[in-house]
Write a protein that binds this DNA or RNA. Sequence first.
DNA 1: TTTAATTTATTGAATATTCATTCAATATTA
DNA 2: TAATATTGAATGAATATTCAATAAATTAAA
Lengths: 204, 204
Amino acid sequence: MKTTIREERKKEIIRGFYDLSRLEGMENVSIAKIGKHLGMPPSLIMHYFPNKRLLVLGLISHILHQYQLIYKPIINKFEKDHKVYPELLVNRLFSREWNLLFDDGVFFSCFAMTFRDETIKREYMKLHLKLRDTLKSILDRDPVFSKGDTALLAEKIFVVIEGAYYYLSLIGDEKEYNRKLNIFKDQVFQLLKLESQLILEDSE
Amino acid sequence: MKTTIREERKKEIIRGFYDLSRLEGMENVSIAKIGKHLGMPPSLIMHYFPNKRLLVLGLISHILHQYQLIYKPIINKFEKDHKVYPELLVNRLFSREWNLLFDDGVFFSCFAMTFRDETIKREYMKLHLKLRDTLKSILDRDPVFSKGDTALLAEKIFVVIEGAYYYLSLIGDEKEYNRKLNIFKDQVFQLLKLESQLILEDSE
DNA sequence: TTTAATTTATTGAATATTCATTCAATATTA
DNA sequence: TAATATTGAATGAATATTCAATAAATTAAA
């Protein structure tokens, strides 16, 4: 276990960076602040992350990993089943229990960096492709949906999910939030319903 | 015209802030840099914007105003007509000529601030409500669509537009970009078609 | 197994640079 | 004459990063 201390410390630092970003906003977090927060000198942070960009890159991997985890329970649920129940799927795709575990502000701060850093852009791209692919494989296991273009359907579903994720983040009022959330859930539900109708009609 | 110099200068400063943000990323733009870029001392900037937050707020108003302008030609086109041609509408909603006039990186940098600043959040919210309202009023002028829930339809359309705006910004490859763009255009087209079908069926 | 050598982890002080902001003085306009 | 616009110099605080020194852990030699 040569690298155990090293890896532990790196994780600890990124975790501290994330926690502070959540509290104060990413653009207001400095290496000195992370050091103070974790009770270590800034020079130790620089020892593990030789410059700030590498630290930011580390945070982004962390964020994207966390984001991906959100969809883990969805996958697990559907891994046993070989049939997709649209209501169930929609509810899970829009479930926001994880909201407590994940900071949207940090996510979008990192996303904004996408426009100035190709490496970061690729990381985000990879995540989005993976999410679509996961949904595709869920649909592929269903006897009906697998007859259609599951990749296409996954694209159409995720564009609504992500548009909703973006737009709903602006809404403070809970009632209004839920009203709109239900609109978008219904919209995805319609996509699923329409697709299965078309497939069933074709096979007649 | 007492305030003409004042207002001109403020515009100039915000314009400089925007230009630099575009070039170097918003988080890397300081008051000193704006000053150098415009050939004026930082103290003059502080004269018009007593602190940086006010300057950022000014930039955000500018951005959101520009963003809104994107949809001006769409509105103008449909203001004369009292009929909505779905293909035409979709093409215009997804038209990206304005991409050259508008920096997405700055837009999302400002959007990220939404999570830490209620004033900024409200500004963004206002913009999004206005865009939906504009589309609603276009649909309201159409004899068919006006019989349905135009506000609901506008929500469903914009969530796709905004999801696409977000997602497509990650895609560099032009072919792939256009392939996906067409998927989302088709998706909105389907929303419009389905809605008019339902209305026409109901009225029989 | 103990010791010596070497690599890695940690510290704290110091660096130059950049940051937003202040201020008093001068120039311009109303 | 009064208000506003503009300048340039100065501020202290915060920034990322460097460096030399010490402590701890790991490896190699005895």
